[in-house]
């Protein structure tokens, strides 16, 4: 049996499947990440009463509902009728994240790939990445996709118990930034001096659907911009 979680190779033009996610939520499943992000942005923009949380993650979007504020059947009808906006531009913003590439895994990664650390930096800082989801920990962006030869590194065999805040990391085809100190199994290439989340203030600058790009900086710029907000 074909796993239901893997999407078909040829996406339908704009269709999606809306299924129940338990008795107080719906899950919309798309063929592509960008369609999912655009649809999620459209649901959030509608501001329907009773919609508590809208969570995009890759090709899925979950919509969590308070059934005492809107009949679930009514919302289901509204969601089914909502098609993703046509792709005139990216649904989000493009954010540049400065990075001091001095991570403990930079050299081992270069050795493993048979390239120089400077080449690892060039491959990582080159592309513009899509943010597919925010999760794992508050404000952590899952972004991708990495390009060869950088893609395909398996996670560390034993995750670090503590990864410093601001660490910029890669694993598989993905890259991300640890906004706060946490355990972590990804490969650490560098650090951003910027503050990417402030829970006390409700500050979450990166959203699913945004695009991010990494820019190499010097130790001096790192020191000068430490704790500045993104």
């Amino acid at each position: 049996m074909e796993p239901t979680s893997s999407a078909p190779d040829t996406p339908p033009t704009e269709g999606f499947e809306l299924i129940a996610l338990g008795d107080r939520a719906f899950l919309a499943r798309f063929a592509g990440e960008r369609q999912a992000a655009r649809w999620a942005a459209a649901v959030i923009a509608r501001g329907w009463p009773g919609v508590i949380d809208v969570v995009p993650a890759y090709r899925d979007v979950a919509v969590f509902v308070d059934p005492e504020r809107i009949p679930l059947e009514d919302l289901q009808r509204l969601l089914n009728a909502l098609t993703p906006a046509p792709e005139v531009s990216s649904p989000g913003r493009r954010l540049v994240i400065p990075v001091l590439y001095d991570g403990p895994d930079l050299e081992p990664t270069a050795d493993r790939l048979g390239i120089t650390p400077a080449e690892v930096v060039a491959y990582h800082a080159g592309p513009v990445y899509d943010v597919f989801a925010i999760g794992f920990s508050p404000g952590f962006p899952y972004a991708g996709w990495l390009r060869p030869p950088l893609e395909g590194l398996p996670r560390r065999e034993s995750p670090r118990t503590r990864v410093p805040a601001g660490s910029v990391a890669v694993a598989g085809r993905q890259t991300g930034v640890y906004p706060g100190p946490s355990p972590g199994g990804w490969h650490l290439l560098g650090r951003t001096p910027l503050c990417l989340v402030d829970m006390d203030d409700g500050y979450f600058p990166i959203r699913a659907g945004d695009q991010i790009q990494f820019r190499p900086i010097t130790p001096e710029e790192f020191e000068a911009r430490l704790h500045e907000r993104l």
Binding site: P3, S6, L21, G22, L27, A57, R59, D60, A62, F132
Partner: peptide, 12 residues
């Protein structure tokens, strides 16, 4: 049967 390419999805 595991699907190694499975992408993470929202949970509650």
């Amino acid at each position: 049967a595991g699907d190694p390419s499975r992408l993470s999805s929202p949970v509650a």
